[in-house]
């Protein structure tokens, strides 16, 4: 078992991105940077799902001149998680857009992006 094959590299990158995203969410004070942290978190999870779907020495699940219909079963990667990731990317985009709209609204209210100045819900 080598940690330098494609699926391991993708998976470890995904985990690093998740940790980086959590770190950004927890440490930064700027609301826009926190949104970027959430976006990194999202990307990391998507990369991990795709890396789980990888079949050794396989190619993309598209049948064309490179992959004939007959031996497609032995040549392609698992298409199901890839289809799920497509959905997850679109939902992630919607979440990011909503967060950005909320940041814009907060900025219009207080004229600052510093999260420390939003203390209305602090107990």
């Amino acid at each position: 078992m080598s940690y330098f094959s494609l699926e391991y590299i993708a998976m470890i990158t995904g985990f690093l991105l998740i940790v980086l995203g959590i770190w950004a969410i927890l440490t930064y004070k700027n609301l826009l940077k926190i949104v970027i942290g959430f976006s990194l978190f999202d990307t990391g999870i998507n990369i991990i799902i795709v890396s789980i779907a990888y079949v050794k020495n396989s190619t993309a699940p598209i049948i064309d001149s490179a992959v004939s219909l007959k031996d497609a079963v032995n040549k392609i990667a698992d298409p199901v998680p890839q289809a799920l990731v497509l959905t997850s990317i679109v939902i992630g985009l919607g979440v990011t857009a909503l967060m950005l709209a909320y940041v814009l609204k907060l900025y219009q209210d207080k004229k600052t992006l510093d999260i420390e100045s939003f203390t209305d819900l602090k107990w």
Binding site: M11, I52, I62, D64, V73, V80
Partner: peptide, 28 residues
């Protein structure tokens, strides 16, 4: 995690029925 050597049964079904099931060359 040990990586996959072959497709899962569900993915195999989708691939084998690519031509007569949905008819799309892009299985995703």
């Amino acid at each position: 995690f040990h990586g996959n050597d072959k497709l899962s049964d569900l993915a195999k079904y989708y691939t084998e029925n690519a031509e007569h099931g949905a008819g799309a060359a892009n299985i995703v």
